[in-house]
Design a protein around this nucleic acid. Sequence first.
DNA 1: CAGTTGACAGTCC
DNA 2: GGGACTGCCAACT
Length: 126
Amino acid sequence: MDGAESGPEPDSGAEPDFGAAVAEVVRLIPAGHVMTYGDVAAVLGSRAARAVGTVMAREGADLPWWRVVRAGGLPPVWHEARALEHYRAEGTPLVERSSAASGSSAWRIDVRRARWSPATDADDPF
DNA sequence: CAGTTGACAGTCC
DNA sequence: GGGACTGCCAACT
């Protein structure tokens, strides 16, 4: 063997190890369910909630980013309007605020029921 | 090689 | 009950 070469692995550019892990988890999220950045990071064994979003920003182009929401069930601010269409299409439990005038978003994600975990298939925690 | 940024979270007041 | 700061880890320049 040649021993340690300049790079036996063609890890050209970036190593999608973390990104692949994030993509893997996000893709495992079934329709009608969502996960928070912290949950995804926790599944990866890291608390890099930010890194999840950052990596997803690069690999997320091919991922259901709308299934990944912030803590508290707040919708993604980058494309909240776009995500709303996906949530309604997927049947994600949303909390519509009939009363107008309440923050920027008039709707919220019912994380109570939409929160899903890849380690458990219990879609009925309640 | 090191510094800065960033699709966040959790805790303190 | 709401607002602000700090901490975390990975990618970018």
